[in-house]
Structures are given as C-alpha cells and as structure tokens.
Design a protein around this nucleic acid. Structure first.
Lengths: 227, 227
DNA sequence: GAAATGATGTGAAACAATTCACAAAATACA
DNA sequence: TGTATTTTGTGAATTGTTTCACATCATTTC
C-alpha cells in the first residue's frame, strides 16, 4: 500500500541548508565565529533548534566560544558530499530543461550535468556547452560517468516511462519536475518539484492573508513548514 | 527576532495538491466516485490522513458513498482560488526567467504572467508572447493589473533590492528562486524555491541509501516531509 | 423492512518535533 | 585564583501531527 511513499527531507536537513546559506554570507563578511543565536536570528528559528539540529548531525561547538565559521561550513559541505564531484544527467530539453542545463549554481556546487537527453532530434542540435543526446545513449553515459542522480524535465506523459528506464539503468535519485507521482522501487529517491504548486501556495496564502487581514489568526494559518 | 520567519505550506495543504493531481487523473479516466483509500493508495498516505485533511478544509463526503470526483475537484479548485484569474509578474529574464515565462502549466491553471521585467535593456528585446519591460515600469503594471504575486528570478545580488521595491508597490506574495533569505514585512508571503538544494537533498539521501544499503534504518532516515 | 455491509468523520492514543530549563564547560575579569 | 558570565548540549515538558478505534449513517441485500 505504501509501496511508493518516501519520507524525505527531514526538517532538520532543510534547516541545515538555511544555516549553510547564512554561514556562506557570514564568511564572505569576514565573520570567524558564530553562535547558535546568530544563525537563529538570521534564519528565523530558535537557537535551541539550531543546536538540536547540529547535535543530530554530530556537530559540536565550544562552550562559550560558539562555532568556528570555517569549520562549521566544512562540516556542512561534508554532509552534502560537496568534497566529491557529482555527475548528473538531465532528461528533457524543453524550456525548463534548457534553463536547468545552464544553471550556473549547479556547477559552483560540484554538481556537474555531464550530459542531457531528449527524444526530439531537433532539440539535440541545440547549442550548449553540454551535449544533448538521444535517449538510446542513456546506458552508455550512465555507465561511463557512474551517474546515480538524474533531473527529469520531460512532459507529464512520458515521465513514468523515462523513469522506469532510468531505474533499470541504475539511477538511484531523481529530481522530478513533471507533475506526476512517479512509481519507483523502495530504494529510489524521488524529489518532486512542482512549480505550479509553489506559485499556487503563495496565491493561497496571500488570499488567506487578505481575508484575515493582519489578525492574530495568521500565526495559525502558517503552521507547518518554516522557510 | 522572528521578523521574517513565515510558517507556510502546512503539510495538509501540500497533500491537498497531491490529492488534486490524482483527482484530475481519475477524472480523465472517467472515474466518478472516489474513496479516501483510493486517494490514499495513489498518493502514498493513509486513508485516515486523507479524511483528516479533508475535514480541515471542511470537505464532506457521503457515508458509504465516498466522494464525487467532480465536486471534490471543484472544492479544491476553490481552495486555490482557481475560479479567479491571477495576474502574476516575473522579474529577471535570465535562463530560468525565460523558461518560467514560457511555462505552459501556469496558464493552464489560470495563473497569467501579465508582464516580465529585467534590468538589462538587451533582454527586454527577447522575443516572447509576454512583454519584457524595464523595472521603471513596475508601478504602472502592478497598478493596472492589480498584481499581488510576483516570481523573482533575479541574481542573488539584487534579490533583496528588487524585493524591497516590490513590497513598496504592494506585492503580497513572492516565489523566490534566488538563494537568499529575503527580509520582508510580516504580511508578505515568501516561498523560497532553491533548485540546488533540491538536487543536493537527493544526492544526500542517495548517499545515505548507499551507506545503509537496504537496511531497516532507511525508514528512520526518511522521516519528515512526505512526497 | 430488518440486518449486514462499507464508508465517513472524529475523539483518544501514540508518536514526533519543538521549546524550556538548566547543568556543564569555557572564557573573562577582578 | 576565584567568581561572574556566556554559551553549548541535552533531558524533560510541551506542543503539534498522525494513527487508531469506533460510533454513525447511507446503502445494499435478503
């Protein structure tokens, strides 16, 4: 029954992303020491939460001395395996696929899109630094670059089919931009990113806000995930 | 202290998105009646959860008879104010901005990007169905189309500056693609979408999986948000 | 039309996450 | 050196969420 449910992105991991973003900024500003309340203030969580999260990942600070910015950043880089290079493939070179293939932040963070794929031979000619292949060459590339993670930006209709093939060829994690709930074996991680939903939730909350208009009830409306 | 923390996207709202996606599919397949366990099976949650979520939004079904697919869909459309047209603006016509401006799903769901903006006059010439304006015309467009929600796809460096301007001009909700924690007044909703983080979390879990390799501990690793 | 069935809806219980409260340790300073 | 101060780290308490268990009711069946 729960065959394709995945519990992913534990809250504390999401917050680690926040802390890291702050730390990078603080490092640039030349701050050498941070305290749990510094990060707390910057990210809008409590300082106890910061310390609890750290303890979950085994991060230790110095009593009174706080945390060393560089050390802390390094620990976080390790959590996300940033020391290693990660070879990623991208399937679907539509509007979104093209944008993702050019997304410079991926490279900055050691995530290299080694190849992109599309079913349409015309799109395979699109000029880009990254080669665009036909899907028939998936196996070859996945094997050669030992790819474990794929970005899926294909149309809804072909998402499941492509996923099945990816899983067959050994892909273990997928960031899925198609608005479909993919069915995959237990051991494959799916992270769904649905741009419409992201926009619609904002519309939803803006409307709630307008209805409630500055009342205290707002606090209640916003329980759940923190950003 | 918590000035720019926002609690958004309550879990049940996120799940409502899942249910709706299923319902749309079921409707296309001609299914007229659904039961809580139908949706539960399809989305990977429990049937009690489905009913609890529904009760939160005041959705009532028929004892024994389940829910009518069309009625249920309509209720959900109303939750997300889909009956109304929503005028959105998009700021930043880089790779991602261009892809978003062409994203057909937005239009399918009554979310119209009425105008796009960029600081670079060259990009303002880019061919598109949607006009690309200079930022100096923000006020005019926001007022004319009564825009309340904006998509922010500008570089990190200018994100806060543009946000301040948007807020000043009456924008109440922002989908932010820049990897920055924006500072906004209490009554403005921010939804951060960080593509690198989405990819990195998959890499994280794939690595955990490889380490743990099929053990029962995996269940523990995945607690938190459900997808 | 009475009994059996199958679904909803919801308090109560179990579980999970966050906050509180404070001991412990490191530093600063007299 | 000893006392005051500041910050970490973590059990305990609280708060929030999910699951359980079952009363309720509409429908079907006999």
């Amino acid at each position: 029954m729960k065959q394709f449910t995945k519990y992913i992105i534990k809250n504390s991991l999401k917050r680690i992303f926040l802390y890291r973003a702050c730390l990078s900024r603080l490092k640039l500003m030349g701050v050498e020491k941070v305290f749990s309340y510094t990060l707390a203030n910057e990210t809008g969580v409590t300082s106890e939460q910061v310390r609890k999260d750290f303890s979950e990942f085994g991060i230790k600070g110095n009593k009174k001395g706080g945390y060393n910015t560089n050390e802390l950043l390094e620990v976080m880089e390790n959590i996300f395996h940033r020391n290693k290079e990660h070879n990623i493939i991208l399937i679907g070179m539509g509007n979104l696929g093209i944008a993702l293939s050019k997304h410079s932040q991926f490279i900055q963070r050691n995530m290299n899109i080694v190849a992109t794929f599309d079913i349409d031979p015309f799109k395979q000619k699109v000029r880009s630094d990254i080669p665009v292949y036909s899907l028939s060459r998936l196996k070859e590339i996945i094997d050669r670059f030992k790819v474990k993670v794929a970005i899926l930006a294909v149309p809804e209709i072909s998402a499941q089919e492509v996923t099945d093939e990816l899983v067959r060829l050994g892909i273990k994690g997928i960031v899925n931009f198609a608005p479909v709930l993919l069915k995959v074996p237990q051991d494959v991680i799916i992270n769904n990113v649905n741009l419409c939903n992201e926009l619609e939730s904002v519309i939803y909350y803006v409307h709630q806000q307008i209805k409630a208009d500055g009342s205290k009830n707002l606090e209640l409306l916003y329980k759940g995930m923190k950003y």
